[in-house]
């Protein structure tokens, strides 16, 4: 994590629009451009984006929360067709891994794995919150520190502190719902209705840096009740 924080931060200073200036003109380009399909499904306001190098070519909002998770497949096909691309053109998949909706994250990550498998293409992940932080830092040139938060069920919210240069600072925190805005009083809390977007997941990938784990971020353990064991080490029946 620490190793790539500096590189993640770089995108905050060089928005993709400006990177265009330095690129060789189309006619003389010899190196094939890297085409990326980015996925962000940590909230109900999910979405997909196509990037060519660091430039966003097309994007689509996909309301694929919960029961509608499978709509992602038709949306991906439509988006590619609209851009005149096929899956064969896509060189890498960038996926937001939360925190957020378990179903959305699992389905999008597994879809990326499936698309990537036959030709062993890279699947790269970042926290979705980092993508949102990058977008807000680009919008607010004066902001130095941001807190990104979201609903974490069971009466809690999750929150992460981001620095413009440092990337994520410290661990994710689980806080009571009514503590929104209270922790990290010096940082600006991003409005809870702002959702991370696939475009920014893609931009973080294009800025370089190592992939995070290819698993959703889980802030709750899978099982709340710990198993009980007898004196002989064998599990006991549930109480």
């Amino acid at each position: 994590m620490n190793a790539n924080r500096g590189r993640e931060a770089a995108v905050f200073f060089v928005p993709a629009r400006r990177a265009k200036i330095f690129r060789a003109p189309r006619k003389t380009a010899r190196v094939p451009r890297m085409k990326t399909l980015a996925l962000e499904f940590s909230t109900d306001a999910g979405g997909l984006a196509l990037l060519e190098d660091a430039r966003v070519v097309a994007a689509a909002a996909v309301a694929a929360g919960g029961r509608r998770s499978q709509e992602l497949f038709a949306a991906a096909a439509d988006l590619l067709a609209g851009a005149g691309w096929t899956f064969a053109d896509v060189g890498a998949f960038a996926v937001g891994r939360g925190p957020g909706s378990y179903t959305g994250l699992r389905v999008s990550l597994t879809a990326a794995h499936g698309w990537a498998l036959p030709e062993n293409k890279p699947v790269w992940t970042t926290s979705s919150a980092a993508a949102l932080a990058a977008e807000i830092f680009a919008e607010q040139p004066d902001a130095a520190r941001l807190v990104v938060s979201g609903a974490a069920r069971r009466g809690t919210i999750w929150a992460g502190l981001f620095g413009r240069r440092e990337g994520r600072i410290g661990d994710w925190r689980l806080l009571p719902e009514d503590a929104r805005g209270q922790a990290w009083p010096d940082a600006h809390w991003v409005a809870p209705d702002r959702a991370p977007r696939a475009e920014w997941v893609g931009r973080l990938f294009c800025a370089g840096g190592a992939s995070e784990e290819r698993q959703p971020i889980y802030l709750h353990p899978a099982v709340v009740a710990a198993p009980r064991f007898g004196a002989d080490g064998r599990p006991l029946p549930p109480a």
Partner: peptide, 18 residues
Amino acid sequence: VSSLLIGLSGARALGQTL
């Protein structure tokens, strides 16, 4: 259902790209 969705999504993605 949450387990079925993993295999289903992986299979659909494989079929799509192949």
